[in-house]
Design a protein around this nucleic acid. Structure first.
Length: 648
RNA sequence: GCCAAUGUAGCUCAGUUGGUAGAGCAGCGCAUUCGUAAUGCGCAGGUCCAGGGUUCGAGUCCCUGCAUUGGCUCCA
């Protein structure tokens, strides 16, 4: 007999060799039905694996990450099994569970079409109905390789060859299908239901562009049909907020073939929002002691040679002239602002009393991104960023870093994005000497300093290796778009290297010349990207202070045209952004259009209003608000704008 | 850059085996003067992404390029 202890502290005696499923059954049949996998002494295992000794046991259901993972991982095997049945020549690569689903990579001449996915889904359902028992077995390395060679699975052979010499290699089998896999899995294909294949896409073998491109099929699976339906519906709903669609419909931006990829045209309404954001950022930065610079959009390559960008990122720059001709005068559009602002620092000699020196600039940058990288307003070849560089003494780094973070968080809060972001502490990769400059000791100490600051502030962050800038570690504030794809919105970086390269110094109190530490940071990030995220956040219904049109004034009939015009004029004099609808149309039609344009307020001027000296107010969110004197409406809207209210 | 899909009126889309382009909305005109999400009638609107090719004939088939979208890779 063995003793199994459960998470609630209770324990029970079982026969040796009992499975987690048996143990679950001993508690309740319902629990057995829900158990997908388990944790034995904290290690994820198959629920159908025999347990040999005393242990602690946690049963994993679909509610647990581990349970979902096993469920979807088994779904991915069922996908591979179905593909193998329909396309026997397909070679298997990898097929993990991921957040919200799973995928499997295949190498086959056949290109999967949406119709193919439907057929594969049918086959998966068949596999589900076949209720194939899932079993696990292990082979020594040499035998495992021979076995996969025999099955004609070269990718699996490669995977095994990378495992340690002494590893026991595990396989999972369901019916005729066998896959190299660490598990765990659900015990029977009949238990994995509600599988939906989402899309097919290309993906490089082992994630390297040097390798062959395989075909990846993405799918998801839920225990309950209703949850799958809700998930699909949520995706459809999210797509309606897609900035790329909404931003064009609302006439915020457009793209034009002959201008080129990654070069959107911001239409009046989009440009207005960016102007408002920019004013807000620049004013706030002024309050926080930043000094404004305005530096050139291009420079001779010599500048980028000093910064190191010429060596590191020449392919990513727009270069004017023959880059290979060392004699020629070659210019490049700026891909970042750092060296330009450094020149402002170098304008005269600096004292320790001058520090910290904070330069900010609303800076347009140019990066020659690869053709497949561009995406809506998220990833562009030309974009404008709220960029700043702070030169500080070592004893000021902590305070200045905190100041940068405080500014970023203030911006996020005002825009209502604060709860949508995550923090990533991006560190270097000491093995990547091609990308990173500087010595290990300095990297380590700078990273430790950043970590201490973050911990001190209680920032909840995840660490990412090999994501730092080439000159220093970053705090990246990440956000997801409607497709779930994560991008950096804001970044704060500590740079202990470029000051030396540029000969930026200050005379310290002791008379010694020293190099300042430079903080690179954005406060709101790239304006185009921020606009994209705001479109998706608010589904185009921007807070009133940001709305490109704040009030639409509508005349009820021709009798009230003049009255409506005079109301509009008064609102404009007051500084509001106003549009008029003086057309000879029914009021319901005008309201419908204004609602679709997501204009915060509609003022309706009919005979009654003219007579009563009031305006009829309609809110896009709250509907008809009745009539009020114009002055009262102005007070209401003004208050909303001044407080930058988010819930209008 | 790689793997795919898509590209037809301002927008959303239809267009059969290759036979000479259509709808709704928007626009314009006329009528209607209306009370909180679509008034009616009429008119106009197209280098079918671009360039080649096949064919008696190409929106449709083939090739190349460009752009848009979803992934992969990359992102100072």
């Amino acid at each position: 007999m063995i003793t199994i202890t459960f998470p609630d502290g209770s324990s029970r005696e079982f026969e040796q060799g009992v499975t987690a499923l048996d143990a679950a059954a001993a508690i309740s049949p319902r629990l057995k039905k829900a158990t997908l996998a388990c944790e034995v002494d904290g290690e994820r295992r198959d629920a159908f694996a025999p347990i040999g000794a005393d242990c602690s046991l946690k049963l994993l259901t679909f509610e647990d990450e581990g349970g979902r993972w096993a469920y979807r991982h088994t779904a991915s095997h069922m996908l591979a099994q179905a593909v193998k049945r329909l396309y026997p020549d397909a070679k298997l690569a990898i097929g993990p569970a991921i957040e919200n689903g799973f995928y499997y990579d295949f190498d086959t001449e056949h290109t999967f079409s949406p119709e193919d996915l439907a057929a594969i889904e049918k086959e998966i359902e068949k596999i589900e109905r076949e209720e194939l028992a899932v079993s696990r077995f292990e082979l020594p390395r040499a035998e495992a390789i021979a076995y996969m060679e025999e099955l004609g699975e070269p990718y699996k052979v490669e995977l095994i060859e990378d495992l340690p010499e002494d590893a026991a290699i595990s396989f999972y089998k369901q019916g005729e299908f066998v896959d190299l896999c660490a598990g765990p899995h659900v015990d029977n294909t009949g238990r994995v239901k509600n599988i939906r294949l989402m899309s097919a896409a290309g993906a490089y073998w082992r994630g390297s562009e040097k390798n062959k491109m395989l075909q990846r099929i993405y799918g998801t699976a839920f225990e309950k049909r209703a949850d799958l339906d809700a998930y699909i519906a949520a995706i459809e709903e999210a797509k309606k907020r897609d900035h790329n669609k909404l931003g064009r419909e609302l006439e915020l931006f457009t793209t034009v073939d002959v201008i080129g990829q990654g070069l959107p045209v911001l239409l009046p309404k989009g440009a207005r929002i960016i102007q408002l954001l920019q004013r807000f950022v620049e004013d706030e930065e002024q309050k926080r002691g930043y000094l404004l610079t305005k530096t050139p959009f291009m420079a001779k390559r010599d500048l980028y040679k000093i910064s190191g960008h010429w060596d590191h990122y020449r392919d990513g720059m727009f270069i004017m002239g023959d880059a290979d001709d060392e004699e020629a005068e070659v210019f490049a559009l700026r891909p970042m602002t750092c060296p330009f602002q450094f020149m402002a620092y170098l304008n005269r000699s600096r004292s320790y009393r001058d520090l910290p020196l904070r330069y900010n600039e609303t800076s347009t940058l140019f990066r020659n991104e690869s053709s497949g990288e561009m995406h809506g307003l998220i990833r562009l070849r030309q974009f404008t960023i709220s960029e700043a560089h702070l030169a500080c003494r070592p004893d000021q780094v902590e305070q200045e870093f905190k100041g940068c973070l405080d500014l970023a968080q203030y911006m996020l809060k005002v825009l209502g994005l604060d709860s949508d972001v995550t923090y990533q502490f991006s560190k270097w990769d000491e093995n990547n000497t091609e990308k990173y400059i500087g010595d290990k000791a300095t990297w380590e100490s700078t990273q430790n300093q950043m970590r201490n600051i973050l911990d001190d502030l209680g920032v909840n962050y995840k660490e990412a290796d090999g994501e730092a800038a080439f000159y220093g570690p970053k705090l990246d504030i990440q956000i997801r778009n409607v497709h779930g794809k994560e991008d950096t919105l804001i970044t704060i970086q500590i740079d202990f290297q470029l000051a030396e390269r540029f000969g930026m110094m200050y005379t310290d109190a002791d008379g010694e010349k020293k190099y300042p530490v430079v903080l690179h940071r954005t406060s709101i990030g790239c304006y185009e990207r921020t606009l994209a995220l705001l479109i998706e956040k608010y589904a185009g219904a921007f807070p009133t202070w940001l709305a490109p049109v704040q009030v639409k004034v509508m005349a009820m009939t021709e009798r009230t045209l003049e009255a409506a015009e005079s109301v509009a004029k008064e609102l404009e004099n007051y500084g509001l952004r106003v549009e008029r609808d003086l057309r000879n149309e029914k009021i319901g039609f005008k309201i419908r259009e204004a609602q679709l344009q997501k204009i915060p307020y509609m003022l309706i001027i009919g005979d009654k209003e003219v007579e009563g000296g009031v305006v009829a107010v309609r809110s896009r969110k709250k509907g008809d608000l009745g009539t009020m004197p114009l002055a009262e409406f102005l007070r209401m809207v003004n208050d909303e704008i001044l407080t930058k209210a988010l819930d209008s």
